[in-house]
Simulated assay, not measured.
Amino acid sequence: MLLDAVKLSPNSASRQKVLGETAHKNGDLGVAQAAFERTIKISEFSSNKNPTAYVALAKVLSESDAPDEALKVLTRTKGVFKDSTDVAIQAAAVESAVYRKTGQQDLSDAAMAQAEQLLASQPGKLSQDAAIEVAQAMLALGRKDQAFGLMRDLVKNHHEDTRLSNKVEELFEQAQMGTEGRSLIAESREEVIQINNQGVMLAKQGQFAEGARLLRTALQNLPGSEVVMMNLCGLLIGQMRAEGKSDALMTEVLELLERVRELNPMNDKVRQYMSALYPSGGRSPG
């Protein structure tokens, strides 16, 4: 059915990409390679180039015993997306895996070190795809604790994202660590749920300072958690309704809302909370 859809729309980059991903998952490397190459060609001069297709093509070539071609694609990827640290991290992680497969352990370690260095410069800003690529490379290198730590943080930062949890579970299944992976996902999600519930409960009891302190601490550990940010915003708005407006709290809420807007421009609660801050339709910043 997917092939039929692609035949009907052969110049659809998104459909070619899905075909490539499906074929890759099913072990059909020839179809996967052709689909990813077509994806890249279709969007070559578009502003909507997808780095995932480039990285996936490199992985397929490596699995097809064409490491030199895989490395060429990764070099090209870094050039095309030269302004993206996120893509550089993904490329370095896959480079590490390619070098390891060819027995060049020193180069593999060097590429992984580069990925980790770039990773440290992006706290809370790493994309899901990049985090999963790095974790996969870490597992291949036997760095289980680091991979688990990275995936634990990723799931906690996006604990309501079922699609992501499925991707993480698939990663661990491929590494023959399915049971451990499922436990990690369940425990990580439950931990964040408990923190959020505790913060909400404290706010309902009027213990705003305690609730805010709890959620601020959680946010320090989970800087990419949209849910924690929004819950903290709601708590602080509730505190101002109960105790009166505060310039410091207003500034904090506005900064949090801006962070959420950067992470997810489609978050409807941002607009709702802005309306709560400026109920009379007064001018808001930005």
Results as ranks from 00 to 15, higher is better:
Leu19Glu: 03
Leu19Phe: 06
Gly20Cys: 09
Gly20Asp: 11
Gly20Lys: 05
Glu21Pro: 08
Glu21Ala: 07
Thr22Gln: 10
Ala23Tyr: 08
Ala23Lys: 06
His24Tyr: 04
Lys25Cys: 00
Lys25Trp: 04
Asn26His: 15
Asn26Thr: 14
Asn26Lys: 15
Asn26Asp: 15
Asp28Cys: 09
Asp28Phe: 14
Asp28Val: 13
Val31Arg: 15
Val31Lys: 13
Val31Ala: 14
Ala32Asp: 07
Gln33Tyr: 10
Gln33Ser: 15
Ala34Pro: 00
Ala34Arg: 14
Ala34Val: 13
Ala34Thr: 12
Ala35His: 03
Phe36Trp: 04
Phe36Glu: 09
Arg38Gln: 05
Arg38Leu: 01
Arg38Trp: 05
Arg38Pro: 05
Arg38Val: 04
Thr39Met: 09
Thr39Cys: 12
Thr39Leu: 01
Ile40Leu: 02
Lys41Val: 04
Ser43Ile: 01
Ser43Thr: 12
Glu44Pro: 04
Glu44His: 14
Glu44Ser: 15
Glu44Thr: 14
Phe45Thr: 13
Ser46Met: 10
Ser47Phe: 02
Ser47Glu: 07
Ser47Ile: 09
Lys49Asn: 05
Asn50Ser: 06
Asn50Arg: 07
Asn50Asp: 01
Asn50Met: 11
Pro51His: 08
Pro51Asp: 08
Thr52Asp: 06
Thr52Asn: 05
Thr52Ser: 05
Thr52Glu: 04
Ala53Phe: 11
Ala53Glu: 06
Tyr54Ala: 09
Val55Met: 02
Val55Ser: 10
Ala56Cys: 12
Ala56Asp: 11
Ala56Met: 11
Ala56His: 11
Ala56Leu: 13
Leu57Val: 06
Leu57Thr: 06
Ala58Asp: 05
Ala58Val: 01
Ala58Gly: 00
Lys59Cys: 05
Lys59Glu: 01
Val60Pro: 05
Val60Met: 10
Val60Glu: 05
Leu61Gln: 06
Ser62Trp: 12
Ser62Phe: 06
Ser62Lys: 06
Ser64Gln: 00
Ser64Arg: 02
Ser64Ala: 09
Pro67Gln: 11
Pro67Ala: 04
Pro67Ser: 01
Asp68Cys: 03
Asp68Glu: 15
Asp68Ile: 12
Glu69Cys: 00
